[in-house]
């Protein structure tokens, strides 16, 4: 099986690109691939715990936790998070925080990189 790395930058609310990223990740995990996800820019808010599900907005927290449980590695850009007032204690269990070099390093071993840009 292969390794897929997703670089995800769109915002939590206001764009369906983040939902798309999770659908891709879910499909790849279901096929047995190793999946890494890098959340950066506005996408870091995806990794903040305590999100409330409203029917007006997409809600991916449950799916994200399921995927972490299935071995998907999710890492959040630490600088992007801190700049948005989102600190280490706000990070859900199983999720890592790192600097941007983590994402760059993942590009070396991954078979495919999907870079899903922000707004």
């Amino acid at each position: 099986m292969g390794e897929l790395t997703l670089g995800v930058f769109p915002s939590l609310v206001g764009s369906m690109s983040l939902d798309f990223s999770f659908k891709i990740a879910e499909a790849a995990v279901a096929k047995g691939h190793k999946v890494n996800m890098w959340l950066s820019g506005n996408a870091v808010m995806m990794a903040k715990k305590g999100q409330k599900a409203f029917k007006d907005y997409s809600h991916n927290e449950k799916k994200m936790k399921e995927l972490i449980g299935k071995g998907m590695e999710i890492t959040v850009c630490e600088a992007c998070a801190e700049a948005r007032g989102y600190h280490k204690e706000d990070t859900p269990e199983g999720m890592k925080r790192a600097s941007m070099d983590w994402y760059l390093a993942k590009t070396v071993k991954t078979d495919r990189l999907f870079h899903i840009g922000g707004e």
Binding site: A79, S99, M100, D101, W102, L104, A105, K106
Partner: peptide, 13 residues
């Protein structure tokens, strides 16, 4: 910033 981060990515490689 991501491109410049290539300078320190070696710690993970």
């Amino acid at each position: 910033t991501h491109a410049i981060a290539s300078q320190t990515a070696e710690i993970y490689m």
